[in-house]
Design a protein around this nucleic acid. Sequence first.
DNA 1: GTCTATATCAAGATAGAC
DNA 2: GTCTATCTTGATATAGAC
Lengths: 176, 176
Amino acid sequence: MATSAPDQLSPRAREIVAAARELLEQDGAAGLSMRGVAERVGIRAPSIYKHLPDKEALEDAIISDGFAELAAVFAPALAARDPLSELAAAYRRFASAHPHLYRLMTERPLRRERLAPGAEEAAAGPVIAAVGGDEHLARAVWAFAHGMTILELNGRFPPGADLDAAWERGIAAFRG
Amino acid sequence: MATSAPDQLSPRAREIVAAARELLEQDGAAGLSMRGVAERVGIRAPSIYKHLPDKEALEDAIISDGFAELAAVFAPALAARDPLSELAAAYRRFASAHPHLYRLMTERPLRRERLAPGAEEAAAGPVIAAVGGDEHLARAVWAFAHGMTILELNGRFPPGADLDAAWERGIAAFRG
DNA sequence: GTCTATATCAAGATAGAC
DNA sequence: GTCTATCTTGATATAGAC
């Protein structure tokens, strides 16, 4: 039986996780059902349980992959002339490209012990570095970026609102 | 049959909305079922439909009330010496006192046509005023406040993180 | 490792009697 | 305006045969 750390998944389990990721990105978390995942793989839902213990394990694997990908898009931004702006732009692009994945990654408490080790830190590190090591300021910046992102995904800004301008105002404020 | 604007609800419908609000605040949106609401009122679930068209109308009424309450706690903050800090503190207190209501109010697109007229504007106006009328900046500030709030509610900050400090850093940045 | 059959649960909403 | 009875849908997960 598969364990929960993503790196230790069997090849077949990874296929199932990949199918689940596709289904999530297409239909959102509400559409992510064991039946739906199984259908994409070409098997029946109960067969999934031979490879993964339960639906939570499936979600955790997707989330863990998401953090690794976020860390990967952050890495080059740190080397730019204006790291904070580049990080913000990368963050925004990531959420825009994978809105349902982004929701899954942020809308629930992290089960940190079930993620790939270091995945969260790899994504958080660049932000702390970009603000000069002040972790309080880094959290404020993250809150701003997440707020802009999730309020947009939730359709909470008025139609026609200039969100580029709002992002710029926020980044400018935090750049000091 | 009841219409959707909260002010036009019948007295019995208002009783049902009040019960729903209690249930929401206790169990969250996932626990807000028509059966559960009915039980609190002392009737059976199908009877609710004689007073409100569907579950969405129930939620819209709760959300509309929430905006009115948020506007009410904002009003005195505007008169303070440091309006931005006071607004942020009021926002944080509101969300902390009514976490499930806060989620319901922010996690989905607003059906603005079904809210009490002016409810959203009454809550947004003070923020715009506090930043000197710059709507882009106001959106950035709101995003920061929402980000801090929802990331805390979602349990996303590390245990022991000094969130007072993060709030202060953010407000300081936006105060300029 | 896959299947069928099933247990279990819970939800929103409607029909029609009273 | 309330009730009982029911429809319809959908979910996670288990048992046990092959």
